[in-house]
Amino acid sequence: MKKLGLLLVILSGALLLYATVDFPLWGDPSSPASLHVSPRYIEKTMEETSVPNIVTAVLADYRGFDTMFETTVIFGAGVVCFLLLRVLGGEEGDHYYRHLPTGVTIHVKGAKGKSLSGEFERIDMLWTPYDLVIKTACRIMIPFIQIYALYVIAHGHHSPGGGFQGGVILGASVILLAISQNLRTALRRIGEKTVGILCAIGVFIYAGTGALCLALGRNFLDYAALASVLGTDPVTARSHGILIVETGVGIAVMATMIWIYNNVSSAGRYDEGL
């Protein structure tokens, strides 16, 4: 098996290496890929949409259908992770608690429905030290990470960034909370239902913007139709339409990242994370 696989890989690699003879040189400005569709985008983007970042404009406006279905694929991946892993039913079994003033750990067997409160803090089954430094540092950092993520989404027209990157950074801030504290703390901040609903809302914002354009008498995802609603000229309306769908993409991606992390890190039981 190993030898056969190696033979197959070397054979196809040799074929591909032979094919590189016909490729254009690296960084050649007159390669075929740079001569056809893209000059149109580079030269017309500024006057048609008033968005300096060409990648954002092409992503959300010219090729909006592509991005919409990519968002749908991400939503589908989140749902599939949930369906594959989630174990429904009450959480039972042994719980561990730490008595905060003394640091004594106690072990409660079969603690179904009961929970200790007050001076006790529930901890994970695996040994978890009391990390004051990590908890405090992450608590200080997380709001700044989230503000940076919102900046990335909102400033995607003028600088690298946009809905995908900002959404992933927002999701990563919640994942950081779940790693630095524990999964239950993150779930108290943003629960399972909220994540699922946000995921669907993100896709809905994107598709709903397209449907609104259709209702206003233009093509699906042709944001120039929003000019009458937003009270601007059609070129600025396209720029604003891009911002609206990028927000939808950001919400969907954020929620999906949190959803997949919650399911994978706790193997669907939602009690103890990483």
Binding site: A33, V55, L59, R63
Partner: peptide, 10 residues
């Protein structure tokens, strides 16, 4: 050329 960037970003 921005077109490959768009396709690969998604």
């Amino acid at each position: 050329n921005p077109l490959p960037h768009v396709l690969m970003l998604t």
